[in-house]
Design a protein around this nucleic acid. Structure first.
Length: 751
DNA sequence: ATGCTGGTTGTTTTT
DNA sequence: CAACCAGCAT
């Protein structure tokens, strides 16, 4: 009895109801900040401690790895025994596991590779070559998207080829078949296959389905509004017997329709489980009432919503602030100056502040100004860690060692680092593999042993033979080494580091990335040696950029940092202060969706997600001009902001840093813009300091920039007088941009 | 075999 | 404006 009390203490009546409803299907509609994760964790604890359900009979599925980790941690805090058997996984992670165990039923061996989008594109390109179709007419990305849609609708290549109605579909059909053939030969799956093949295994093998539905007697699915039809069908199969399925979601936060997520799954759920109970959580424990009012009135513009109005006991809070600026850089300056103020004057730690935007490309201007103002930040997403060349190269070696059929991995590294294997040689080998219907690895082995006739020159044969010996050698030692040693071994054997050093500019970052990869493999050393490699690879394939950055942070620092993040990735997170930037028609809502009512409503939900991330301070900003496809365009305030009641927002208009200073300071202004361009490529930041800026010199201390000649200039220091400094070489940082922003209060402006 | 250059291309969100 | 690629020069 006391255990029960402990688990239920501190929960609202509604929350208690959700936690204790364990038998039979439950639909939990949970608004932002309504304590959803808490309820889910307590529900699991309730199942274990009160209902005495063994932990291994419980399966909790989330959308992201981060959510999975969070939920698992919270459950583990509440559950006292056998917590290691709790299954908390992402959909993809769960399916991958099923396939490792049961994949042999469908011709998939345990060591299958998981292909990411990059790999997929290469396979698509190869498919076009195999089919002798000119790829120039088609974009691989589009084809992948179509194939993905087909897979999510459970349409096989064979079925699709029978339904073809026009020439373009005919081509897609042929490519689809080839693509799937190559994957099968490579003993590989793509992300959709993880779900699709799991579905087929359950659907076709009653005894396997029985085994797992008997095991997972209690199933809990998070972010249900983001599941696609395929995921729902897997879920239905698994819980059809026991019907102890709890799905948690919020239709207003459905933002993944482009990945074929289907929010009508929520209503489908009611149809499939007519005996289900629905509980709605709409009390927010996160945001102020002003923020919730803004969110409510925005989302009310969407059609066909069930009425759900967020409310809170947190009090109304301050008003929301809208910054109107004249350029992208001004926007970044103003936002970051305010962040600096919040941090220094109001003592708000940087890690409680986030800048959120619609598209990744928007992060650039903020990064540049962050560097200039010496604000530490972490960029979530963007160029993903595991997407970097050097990381992918090393992973390709590991993949090939783990799965010799992985042609895509092989082709990536056959001549990386350079070992004298030409493109011509590679295409000859690929051609042979296609003709013989075997893998490239097999073909090269045959060539080496002179068991197959080729028109390759002896030198080429020698090169590829050495390559095969290298791979075989790595393979042999792989069983006797920890994963970390194995990676080091590969790097040594291939002389990968000296290969990187040839590009002086980029080598430092790249070597760092390699070291980080090695460091990240460390946590697998405890595992059995035969699963170290495969679980390392699997986790890397299924882990998102968000997750990776997090683990990376734990290793190297605990210093606080500002977060830069897309609105999509921000779902599920919360910050004390949120800056929703780029609130412009064409950006939010995105151009692609204007004119399409359904797409527009999804954009509105994206905006809604952003707003509801904020606990106490919410800022919007937009710029009246923005660089787009190489030319400047005029922008207008996002229609979504005008849907928020005016009395909730304080507008602050910036008179324009750029316009003010261009005439008297045009040199530095232009230099400044140049800076913005070069920033991205080189790690060494070129600093140009504008006159009037406050700077800090390692030796001379604080000073004010008096003159700026571009490359160099003069700075006045209180104790050392005027000094001439080269901006690129002097040990200085910018304390305060000279741009002391000129705001005009709306009242004064109109007066 | 490798590296450079100039022309062409596409542009949202990601497990 | 970028990233990418094909074709050319080394």
């Amino acid at each position: 009895m006391s255990i029960k009390k402990t688990i239920l203490s501190g929960l609202s009546d509604r929350q208690k109801e959700a936690v204790t409803h364990t038998e039979g299907p439950l639909l939990l509609i949970a608004g932002p900040g309504s304590g959803k994760t808490r309820v889910m964790a307590h529900r699991v604890a309730y199942l274990v401690a009160v209902k005495k359900i063994p932990t291994n009979n419980i399966l909790a599925v989330t959308f992201t790895n981060k959510a999975a980790r969070e939920l698992k941690e919270r459950c583990e805090r509440l559950v006292s025994y056998q917590k290691e058997f709790l299954q908390v996984r992402t959909f993809h992670g769960f399916c991958s596991r099923i396939l490792r165990f049961e994949g042999e039923n469908i011709g998939l061996s345990r060591d299958f590779s998981i292909f990411d989008e990059d790999d997929q594109k290469k396979v698509i390109k190869r498919s076009f070559e195999d089919e002798n179709i000119d790829i120039k007419q088609h974009s691989p990305g589009k084809i992948i998207s179509v194939i993905s849609k087909l897979k999510n609708s459970i349409i096989s290549p064979e079925k699709f080829s029978n339904e073809v109605t026009n020439f373009s579909e005919e081509i897609i059909s042929r490519i689809f078949s080839r693509y799937q053939d190559i994957l099968l030969k490579s003993n590989a799956v793509d992300f959709d296959d993880l779900l699709l093949k799991t579905f087929h295994i359950f659907d076709d093998n009653k005894y396997i389905l029985d085994k797992y539905s008997d095991l997972y007697r209690y199933i809990q699915i998070d972010e249900f509004q983001d599941t696609n039809p395929l995921q729902f069908r897997v879920t239905k199969l698994l819980s059809d017997q026991n019907r102890n399925l709890c799905v948690v979601g919020d239709p207003d936060q459905s933002i993944y329709s482009w990945r074929y997520a289907d929010p009508t799954n929520l209503t489908e759920f009611k149809k499939s489980f007519p005996e289900s109970t629905t509980i709605t959580l709409d009390q927010s424990y996160r945001s102020t009432q002003n923020i919730l009012n803004a969110a409510n009135s925005l989302i009310n513009n969407n059609s066909a919503r069930s009425d759900k109005n967020l409310w809170t006991n947190n009090g109304s809070g301050g008003k929301l602030i809208l910054y109107e600026t004249n350029s992208e850089e001004d926007e970044a300056r103003i936002v970051l100056n305010e962040i600096k103020r919040l941090n220094q004057s109001e003592n708000i730690p940087l890690d409680e502040i986030a800048i959120m935007y619609r598209v990744n490309a928007q992060s650039r201007s903020f990064e540049v100004i962050c560097n200039r103002l010496a604000i530490r930040y972490r960029l979530i997403g963007g160029v993903k860690f595991y997407d970097r060349q050097e990381v992918k190269d090393i992973l390709a070696y590991l993949r090939l060692v783990s799965n010799k059929s992985d042609d895509t991995a092989l082709l990536r590294i056959i001549n990386t680092p350079r070992r004298g294997i030409s493109d011509r040689t590679v295409s000859e080998i690929t051609r042979l593999a296609r003709e013989e219907g075997s893998t490239i690895f097999e073909i090269i082995s045959l060539i080496k042993e002179e068991k197959i006739k080729t028109n390759l020159i002896p030198r080429a044969i020698k090169s590829i033979s050495e390559f095969i010996e290298l791979v075989n050698n790595i393979f042999e030692v792989s069983n006797q080494m920890d994963i970390t040693d194995l990676i080091n071994y590969i790097i040594d054997k291939t002389e990968y580091r000296s290969y990187l050093r040839r590009d002086e500019e980029k080598s430092i970052t790249r070597l760092e990335n390699i070291n980080e990869l090695i460091a990240s493999s460390d946590q697998y050393i405890g595992l059995d040696s035969d699963v170290q490699l495969s679980s390392f690879l699997e986790n890397l394939a299924l882990v998102s950029s968000v997750d990776f950055l997090e683990t990376g942070d734990q290793i190297d620092s605990n210093s606080e940092e500002l977060t830069l993040i897309t609105l999509h990735q921000a779902k599920g997170l919360e910050y004390k202060v949120v800056f929703l930037v780029g609130c412009e028609d064409g950006l939010l809502p995105h151009m692609m969706s204007i004119g399409d009512i359904e797409a527009l409503e999804e954009e509105r939900r994206i905006c809604y997600v952003g707003i509801t991330r904020a606990k106490s301070h919410l800022y919007f900003s937009y710029s009246t001009t923005r660089m787009f496809r190489g030319s400047f365009g005029g922008q207008i305030l996002s229609r979504f902001i005008t849907e928020i009641p005016e009395h909730l927002i304080v507008r602050k208009r910036n008179m324009g840093y750029s316009n003010f200073h261009m005439p008297e300071n045009s040199v530095s202004y232009n230099k400044d813009k140049l800076d913005l361009k070069t920033q991205k490529n080189s790690r060494s930041e070129k600093l140009i300091f504008l006159t009037g800026s406050k700077v800090k010199h390692d030796i001379f201390g604080e000073g004010i920039v008096m003159k700026n000649f571009g490359e160099d200039g003069e700075v006045l220091f209180s104790n050392f007088g005027i000094k001439k400094l080269m901006w690129n070489y002097a040990p200085i940082i910018l304390l305060e941009d000279q741009n002391e922003i000129n705001f005009i209060d709306p009242e004064i402006d109109s007066a």
